[in-house]
Amino acid sequence: MLIVVSVYTDYLVPARSAAGAAATPFYHVTSWPGQIWNWAGNNLRTRDHLQGENDTLRAELLIHKGKLQQMASLAAENVRLRQLLNSAEMVEDHVLVAELIGVSPDPLMHKVVINKGLRHGVYLGQPLLDASGLMGQVVEVREATSQVLLVTDSTHALPVQVNRNGVRAVAEGTGDLHKLILRHVSNTVDIRVGDLLVSSGLGGRFPVGYPVAEVESVVNDPGKSFAEIIARPQAQLNRSRHVLLVLGEDQAALEPANE
């Protein structure tokens, strides 16, 4: 009975997020060993090690700063071109840093728990990123934590486009942490191995332009009506500890420009 109500209706959603508070202490407790490990890693280091790390970080910062210099002029150019095309301006997204405190114990379910909730302004459907790509979206908000469905869960799908030429597709999760498939892409579409797939922003849930996956293999079987395309998620879905919640409601970018 309860299962049927839970699967086919939305009645239990408020009850779930309220009762979810009973589940969070477990995640907090089980995240302690990792936190202690992190703390030890941060505090019990030799001077040489820290200096080496400092040097590499400085070098990295220099490279990023160099790239950022161009970024300013590119952004300005982008705004000018958009004005010429009469389309809406891109809104810069704001982010909230969150920490991952738990992973769903069921191997068939790709869900994680983060330490930000209703209290911090998290909302249903909010996208989650890590340093290298899109991770998933919030599916359940609790008082101080929330649950995130990863892009690789077999019930998840998101609209993407190929960064090289703008071909649109839908990337579906497979239940495998390192595999996404592109659904219903015809055999003649120009997608090659190594192409970067970025979120296309269609559907209005995910913001535009975040890297999602890299195409790993393309199989064109003449006997089948669609190509079999497998992509590997960019985000470190099984490793990231610090994640970013995108706060920017870029509805402005989705609304059609005023004629």
């Binding site: 009975m1 299962i3 114990p105 379910m109």
Partner: peptide, 17 residues
């Protein structure tokens, strides 16, 4: 069972059953 379901984030009632 319901508590375990909340923990795993699955369908409510799954482990209860």
């Amino acid at each position: 069972g319901c508590w375990v379901d909340l923990l795993s984030g699955g369908v409510l009632g799954q482990h209860a059953l």
